[in-house]
Amino acid sequence: MMGLLLRRRIAGMSWSVVRGVLILGLCFLIVNPVFVKISTTFMTEKDIFDPTVQWVPRNLSLSRVVKHYLDVAGRMNYIRASFNSLVFSLVISTCQLVACTVVGYGLGRFEFRGRGLIFAAVVFTLVVPPQMITIPLFLNFRYFDFFGLLEGGGFNLIGTYWPFILTALTGTGARNGLFIFIARQHFRGMPRALEESAYIDGAGQFRTFLSIMLPGAGPILLVIFLFSFVWQWNDIFYTGTFMRGGLNLLPFSLRSLISTYHWSISDEFKTIVNNTGMVLFIMPLLVLYVFLQRYFVESIERTGIVG
């Protein structure tokens, strides 16, 4: 006969073991591709198909790896392209943040006729696949005439910041519906009394928003900003369409990296080069994530997405 306590203890311990193995295994599945990518960049062509080589290449020489990285970075125009991407992502995600917070505030705090309809429209923008509207949008921006107000051919906005700024400022950029939704859920949950006391003290609506509502929304703003920044940095669907022939962003230079080499290079060498490019591409985000993951993970729990 085993005591009840002992049995409980054994059950608890075995669950801990199972849980530990499971979590470790899954974490390995997630992290492994990143490690493989990094280790591939250290390899020579021979190492790729060598089955005895796992993670650590046979003849590792630091100077060769450094030279290889510098070569790839040079071909990608890395400094220039990542600077372009950084500025671009910062500007666009700031615009998205401002617009989505303002619209979310309007939807969350005010009761006006048609509010439900507008909220439904926000959700609708999320559900319609962007492929459906990118071609008409592309043509609108290619021959931008303020929707028929301007005579003649109109301006060509493709390859500039404008398509992104215009859609970001109006809350219709990539997955902006989600950001509006998050902001709305948050502001809806704030106590009314906060606002009322501000009004009584004579603050206008805008003032109340800036100095009462925004400071409390810090974590939400950060989540929206981070999502928007990461998605903007990684995006090649929208940028590939509206930034055609414009700014050289990092995804573009990664995509065309292999074409800077002679056509006769071996598949093994191609793999090494592409992996180096990919590591260089995700490196800034990984560094950002290491510093900010605490906010990323913790604050989404407070976004009220669940509300």
Binding site: I30, N234, D235, F237, D267, I282, Q293
Partner: peptide, 22 residues
């Protein structure tokens, strides 16, 4: 770690991985 894929999901990476031997 479980949240890491959000960062690593990029269109270009998928394009390149199609012909990536490793």
């Amino acid at each position: 770690i479980f949240f890491l894929p959000v960062i690593l999901t990029a269109g270009v990476l998928h394009e390149l991985e199609v012909e990536d031997l490793m």
